[in-house]
Every structure is written in structure tokens, then in C-alpha cells.
């Protein structure tokens, strides 16, 4: 080949090379994306995040544990709220340990009568009964979930997809 031909062919060759590389890249990336994206589930076989837990009359004053979703229902007279029973450190199920006498606790510049505390068996984390973490490696306070009365049958309904702050109360 003459030198002139070589000079003309070089850009064409590298262009073709780049195009081939590009197309192969698209193929490779597509394969990779398919392999990874298919592993991210779109549909889950899990119990619904919003669920009914029975009529308010069936709950005693104090603390009740809903074991399937691991939440604690707290009742004080006609006032209800729902607290998560899952330790915010690494997910172990908390145990509620009642006090023999009510204690005066100050939390976030607010005083209230505390009836007990949550204890985690895994690393000794402790939470006040309103959810604040005060001992152990737990990094965050317990979540509170929205509770409402279902209009159709009057049952208490907990919505774990809706987090509420610790001033929330449902009055029945």
C-alpha cells in the first residue's frame, strides 16, 4: 500500500475499531445491567405494612406486644400509640421491662411518668418507654407508627409505612 493509502486508512480503521468497541460495550453493559437488575425484587411476599389489630376494647392498659410485626401497643386510658419493638442497632426483638413504681423521667426537655424500659438481649441497648435510646450501641430512638381507627369496623389499624413523632396519640 502506498503511504497515502495508509494515512487515509488509519482514521477509518480506528473509527471502525471504536465503533466495534462501542457496540461490544453496549452488549456487555446490557448483559451486566440485566444480571444485576433482575436480582432487585419488584414484588414482595410480605405482610402488608398497614394492618388491623383488633378492637380497642381488647387491649389492656399498659403494654401489649403484636408478635408478627414486632410492635408494642401502648394504652393509657383512651389513648393509644404504637412503638416499634425492633432494636435500632442490629434488629433484635426488644423486651419490655416494667418498673415496680413509675419513675419521673426527663427526656427532650419534657418530664413524664415512665412505666418501664425496653431492653435488647443482643448487646444490652436500652430505650425509654417513649423510645429514646439511652444505653448501649443503639444509634437511634425507636420508631413510632401511625395508629388510627378503621371506619368500617372500628378496629385499631397500625400503618408501619407512616412514621410519626413522639407526640402522636390516638384518642379513642
Amino acid at each position: 500500500m502506498s503511504k497515502k493509502d495508509e494515512q487515509v486508512n488509519k482514521p477509518r480503521r480506528s473509527f471502525l475499531g471504536m465503533m466495534t468497541g462501542g457496540v461490544l460495550g453496549v452488549g456487555a453493559l446490557s448483559t451486566l445491567w440485566i444480571s444485576v437488575r433482575s436480582l432487585v425484587p419488584n414484588i414482595l411476599y410480605e405482610p402488608p405494612r398497614k394492618f388491623k389489630i383488633g378492637l380497642p376494647e381488647t387491649y389492656q392498659d399498659g403494654v401489649s406486644f403484636i408478635d408478627e410485626q414486632r410492635i408494642y401497643i401502648m394504652r393509657d386510658g383512651n389513648t393509644f400509640h404504637a412503638i416499634s419493638g425492633i432494636c435500632t442497632h442490629l434488629g433484635c426483638t426488644l423486651k419490655f421491662s416494667p418498673f415496680s413504681d413509675e419513675k419521673e423521667i426527663t427526656v427532650r426537655n419534657m418530664s413524664y411518668a415512665s412505666k418501664g424500659e425496653f431492653i435488647c438481649p443482643c448487646h444490652g441497648s436500652k430505650f425509654r418507654d417513649e423510645g429514646t435510646n439511652f444505653a448501649g450501641p443503639a444509634p437511634r430512638p425507636l420508631l413510632w407508627f401511625a395508629v388510627e381507627i378503621a371506619p368500617e369496623d372500628g378496629q385499631l389499624t397500625v400503618d408501619m409505612a407512616q412514621e410519626v413523632d413522639r407526640d402522636f396519640r390516638l384518642v379513642v
Partner: peptide
């Protein structure tokens, strides 16, 4: 009534849940 806990499934509780 609701003065005390609901005992319908009391037998399901495990030993760790007792104080």
C-alpha cells in the same frame, strides 16, 4: 374484659417473654 392481658393465645408465649 381488658383490665388484664388478652389470654386467648397465652400458650404461644416463649420463656423469654416472661419476667
Amino acid at each position: 374484659g381488658r383490665m388484664g392481658p388478652n389470654l386467648t393465645f397465652e400458650g404461644e408465649k416463649s420463656a423469654e417473654e416472661y419476667d
